[in-house]
Design a protein around this nucleic acid. Structure first.
Lengths: 258, 258
DNA sequence: GAACCTAGTTCCATAAAGTGGAACTCCTGG
DNA sequence: CCAGGAGTTCCACTTTATGGAACTAGGTTC
């Protein structure tokens, strides 16, 4: 009768978790009745489970008796555990993107005047990216960096822009134009601007408040990234980045339909 | 045999919640064995419950099989639910402070160049504070404001400091000296500096990373806040602020004991 | 202000789900 | 290759959760 086939005997916990999930993933406080409806549980069961969740600080009630995530969630959020866990939330999205493109996938964030790689999925080919996790790259020459710059998630340092290949953008005006393109298209491209033979495409990851917190990228050798492939890859990259954004609570536009 | 007398029949959920609590409130990943030890549950039970929690995104395992808070917590934290819920976490501390002093309790945060009151517990006396929630007061004249200033959680605006009573500090040098005192003592006092007849004492609330995010205050009419009373009140205020800080993950000093 | 909803909690007999000891499977290190 | 620890799976036992019904608490209507 339930949606999922429960692997083993833990009904009560699973049901409680389902209730909890409804409460936590909702953007607004949830009523008791909505919860019985959403989970299909009997009133008595719902009541007992919610009482247990409340007793354990997993949910709480507002003045109208509606349910909100409890002290345990708030406390976790305040203690900053989230920052270190971005990678964990992102992993499934990276994996999916890696599987569908076969190329090297990276997740990068701003770290001072550079872009730092914090997670990676290796490519399926013999020739491909090495491990970049922990490495920092120039903002103006990398696709991830350009995404961060374009959305104000990183600032260039004062000095002149270092040239790493003959295609590297070093003029401020050119970069500004490129960044405008990044915002318009929804993704950034670094076409041999960081390293000869390397093309990278990156898309922005938004947080609940619409600010960009990271960028998701696909890197491949020029030999495998022709124009048509690039278009498809870019679309997939933007898709997964959007999915991750949504997991972080970003809601691009109020959407119709229940 | 168990530590707590369970009010009603929800053993499995309570046990799962206890495991979850261990995982979430720990600063480091927790091992399976630590969990069995901490909760006193049988290996088989622990295993089953953890599997259920994992399946539902409440915990996850790192590469060494140790347990961390799951996607549900991270996602909640990233979507910014915490900010709106500071009041909820703080409530018990405010209540306790209110009960033990009998006076008006406030929780305030920085809001631009002012201190904004975001929660309040009303005093037990007939004469006392009115509702301040939502009100903003000058940083330099209020105890909450001085705490925020002293710990760099708020900045004064450029202009001159407005005088609201004849005791208001309006000289920058005097204020600077006062703020040094606030840091040294651990609390701030506004002695009729905001309104004649009103004394307020405030203590800082720290976040996990040691930054100050809010201030907790006790306000009373001069008639009830004599010197000795003030000392006791200040101590209680600092205590509760420390308790709240701890709930937000702040650990002033590594603590001994299992 | 009495009758009537609706929302939610408590009761209780039933049976289903959780429990824990023991057996089993994986690792890791000697 | 064997020993020992860590964790999972099995399974008979029984404790614990379940859900319908009764009950309580607010709120609305007439």
């Amino acid at each position: 009768m339930s949606t999922a086939g429960n692997p083993s005997g833990t009904q009560a916990v699973d049901r409680a978790a389902k209730l909890l999930s409804e409460v936590v993933h909702s953007t607004v406080p949830v009523t008791f009745t909505e919860l019985t409806a959403a989970t299909g549980l009997a009133k008595s069961t719902t009541s007992r489970l919610l009482l247990a969740l409340e007793r354990n600080g997993l949910v709480r009630r507002d003045d109208h008796g509606r349910f909100l995530p409890g002290e345990m969630f708030v406390s976790f959020a305040w203690r900053g555990g989230a920052d270190t866990s971005l990678v964990a939330v992102a992993q499934p999205f990276l994996d999916r993107l890696g599987k569908s493109t076969g190329e090297t996938i990276n997740l990068g964030v701003a770290n001072g005047p550079q872009a730092e790689t914090i997670a990676q999925v290796d490519c399926a080919y013999l020739i491909g990216g090495t491990n970049w996790v922990g490495l920092s790259v120039p903002l103006h020459a990398s696709a991830i960096g350009k995404v961060l710059l374009a959305h104000g998630a990183a600032q260039l340092s004062a000095g002149p822009m270092a040239r790493t290949t003959d295609k590297t953008i070093t003029s401020e005006a050119t970069l500004r134009a490129d960044l405008a393109g990044v915002r318009a298209r929804g993704y950034a491209v670094s076409d041999e601007e960081l390293e000869p033979g390397l093309i990278t495409i990156a898309a922005p990851v938004f947080r609940f408040d619409g600010t960009v917190v990271a960028a998701l990228s696909v890197s491949a050798p020029t030999s495998r990234m022709k124009r048509e492939t690039a278009m498809a890859v870019a679309r997939r990259c933007v898709e997964e980045a959007a999915g991750l954004s949504s997991a972080l609570g970003y809601r691009p536009r109020a959407r119709k339909g229940a």
